[in-house]
Simulated assay, not measured.
Amino acid sequence: MLACHCNLITEKEIEDTIIGLLEADPWQLIVPAKVYHALSRRGRCCGCFPNVVETIIRVTENYHSRSDAAGDDIVSHLDRVRELRGQYGSRRHERRTTSHRAA
């Protein structure tokens, strides 16, 4: 599935990049800019970033559930990330008005 229309990046490419970053350092903070930098791309309209954040959370959670790390640490950290996203309004429409046109 195409995750970023501006750069023509698939969700599989993003997942593979996240796994590569996690293999280098399993406890690093991964953000969309780091993923795009690893792909030698940059965010253009950044409308895909909320979906990339969800992909980062999902892939990181799956990666750590397969590792030897303590499960309590992983779950509490990811729950905290989800709570912060809800607190700071990630579910909003990224300041796009109803008259916003993509093309």
Results as ranks from 00 to 15, higher is better:
Thr60Ile: 06
Glu23Asn: 13
Ser67Ile: 11
Ser67Trp: 01
Ala69Arg: 13
Val59Tyr: 01
Ala24Arg: 12
Arg92Cys: 06
Asp73Trp: 13
Thr17Leu: 01
His5Cys: 05
Arg41Gly: 00
Thr10Asn: 01
Arg80Thr: 12
Ala24Gln: 12
Gly43Ala: 12
Arg44Ser: 09
Glu94Met: 14
Val52Gly: 06
Ser76Met: 05
Leu39His: 02
Val75Pro: 08
Arg96His: 12
Val52Met: 05
Arg42Glu: 06
His100Tyr: 14
His93Ser: 13
Arg42Pro: 03
Ile57Glu: 07
Arg66Ala: 14
His100Gly: 05
Ser40Asp: 15
Ser67Met: 08
Arg44Glu: 11
Glu15Ile: 11
Gly71Ile: 10
Asp16Thr: 07
Tyr88Phe: 15
Leu84Pro: 01
Ile14Thr: 05
Leu21Asp: 02
Asn62Glu: 13
His5Phe: 02
Val31Leu: 12
Asp73Lys: 15
Val52Trp: 02
Pro26Lys: 08
Ile9Arg: 03
Pro32Glu: 02
Glu11Asn: 07
Val53Trp: 10
Cys4Trp: 00
Arg92Trp: 07
Glu94Thr: 11
Met1Val: 10
Arg95Ile: 09
Cys4Arg: 01
His5Arg: 00
Leu78Val: 15
Met1Trp: 03
Arg91Ala: 13
Ile56Arg: 01
Asn62Ala: 11
Glu15Val: 14
Glu15Asn: 06
His37Gly: 08
Glu23Gly: 05
Val81Met: 11
Glu11Val: 05
Gln28Ala: 03
Arg95Asn: 15
Leu78Phe: 05
His100Met: 03
Glu13Cys: 02
Thr97Asn: 11
His77Lys: 09
Glu11Cys: 03
Ala69Lys: 14
Asp16Val: 07
Gly89Arg: 04
Arg82Val: 14
Cys45Ala: 03
Ser90Gln: 12
Ser67Val: 12
Gln28Cys: 07
Ser99Phe: 07
Glu23Leu: 11
Leu29Phe: 08
Tyr36Ser: 01
Val59His: 01
Glu94Phe: 11
Ser90Ile: 08
Glu13Ser: 06
Trp27Ser: 03
Arg58Pro: 00
Pro32Gln: 05
Asn7Asp: 04
Gly71Trp: 09
Gln87Asp: 14
His93Ala: 14
His77Thr: 07
Asp79Phe: 09
His64Arg: 03
Ile18Lys: 03
Arg101Trp: 08
His5Ala: 08
Pro50Arg: 02
Asp16Gln: 06
Asp25Phe: 02
Val53Arg: 11
Leu22His: 09
Glu83Trp: 10
Arg85Asn: 15
Ala102Pro: 04
Leu39Ile: 04
Val53Gly: 04
Arg85His: 09
Cys45Asn: 02
Gly47Ile: 03
Pro32Cys: 09
Arg96Ser: 04
Phe49Trp: 00
Val35Arg: 01
